[in-house]
């Protein structure tokens, strides 16, 4: 991967993706070999929106590469609450760190940050836009189970505002994947995502119900339907109930169906699915560590081509 930043999944070629995933596999196989690789370097965690797992996952990944991390803290207690622009904030933090992980409520925030600073920027979610590092760990999880070609995937839930969905759908166009999108009419894929999928000639189909296609799927990727997307709470409960799966739903599925979820889930996947062989969402979350280590390693290597890493690793 020859990229300075990771802003959107649409920037990634098949080779880029496979290179990071190969490295993630190497990291997972021999984490000790990477333990001091970026000793002395600092990763800045800039979360303008609440996050638990993404923030901790990057924090952990960085520390396992020997890095230190600095955290902007909650937005309420930072300079942002004094009215500082994102442009200024990232320019200042650039001087404190060797790379920057950014989550922000506005679409396009990471693109702006990438234009303002020279250190690598990783988009950890920009509004309803993109979440490409999640996609890399999603792809890693899929690849370990099924491979990424000749794949049939169902992506279900909030497809309109779901940034993990937007990134995943874009990245899958680099592979031989049939994509089924299952959602209520009001939460279908946005025009911009649909545009990109059509541009690539991707094979996509849209559905309002899961049942008719569940037996065709290798992977079912479930996302949360958020209450705040609906003006009426009753409507939310009705719709959310229709896109909830449990162990019985999966009776009709192939034995090797993999069920994924970017988490946190609320009740769209019933706890009884956890005990089935289909459930993979906790491993998926754990895969965030080797994948984000591989990603940070790659971006830092690109940013420091002379290579002053302490440890030589056969890659």
């Amino acid at each position: 991967m020859r990229q300075d930043h990771l802003i959107t999944a649409t920037q990634l070629s098949r080779d880029d993706i496979e290179a990071v995933l190969d490295r993630a596999r190497a990291v997972a196989d021999d984490p000790a070999a990477y333990a001091d690789r970026h000793a002395g370097r600092v990763l800045a965690l800039c979360f303008f929106e609440p996050s638990t797992r993404t923030r901790m996952s990057f924090d952990s990944a960085a520390k396992r590469l020997g890095m230190n991390t600095i955290d902007m803290g909650d937005v309420d207690s930072s300079s942002v609450s004094k009215g500082e622009s994102l442009s200024d904030t990232v320019r200042v933090i650039e001087g404190y760190a060797d790379a920057l992980v950014l989550r922000h409520p506005s679409e396009g925030a990471a693109t702006l940050a990438g234009e303002r600073v020279d250190v690598p920027v990783v988009n950890a979610g920009d509004g309803a836009g993109q979440h490409p590092s999640q996609t890399l760990l999603d792809l890693h999880t899929i690849r370990e189970d099924h491979g990424l070609d000749d794949l049939t995937i169902g992506i279900m839930g909030d497809l309109k505002y779901g940034r993990t969905v937007h990134s995943l759908a874009a990245a899958l166009t680099e592979f031989d994947a049939n994509q089924h999108f299952i959602s209520p009419e009001s939460l279908r894929l946005p025009r911009s995502v649909r545009f990109d999928l059509h541009e690539t000639g991707a094979q996509i189909r849209e559905h309002e119900e899961l049942d008719p296609i569940i037996d065709e799927l290798d992977v079912l990727y479930v996302t949360r339907i958020q209450k705040e997307r609906f003006p009426d709470e009753n409507e939310y409960h009705r719709v959310a109930g229709e896109y909830r799966i449990d162990a019985e739903t999966l009776d009709a599925a192939a034995d090797d169906l993999t069920v994924m979820h970017p988490l946190p889930r609320v009740d769209e996947i019933a706890p009884d699915v956890d005990d089935t062989d289909h459930a993979r969402y906790f491993e998926q979350a754990h895969n965030g560590i080797p994948v984000r280590m591989a990603l940070l390693d790659t971006l830092l290597e690109n940013a420091n081509p002379d290579g002053d890493e302490g440890t030589e690793v056969d890659r």
């Binding site: 622009s85 994102l86 442009s87 409520p105 506005s106 679409e107 396009g108 925030a109 702006l112 309803a128």
Partner: peptide, 13 residues
Amino acid sequence: PNRNCITNADEPI
């Protein structure tokens, strides 16, 4: 037209 776009967020942009 996207009110949630960073270009509508009072940034020097």
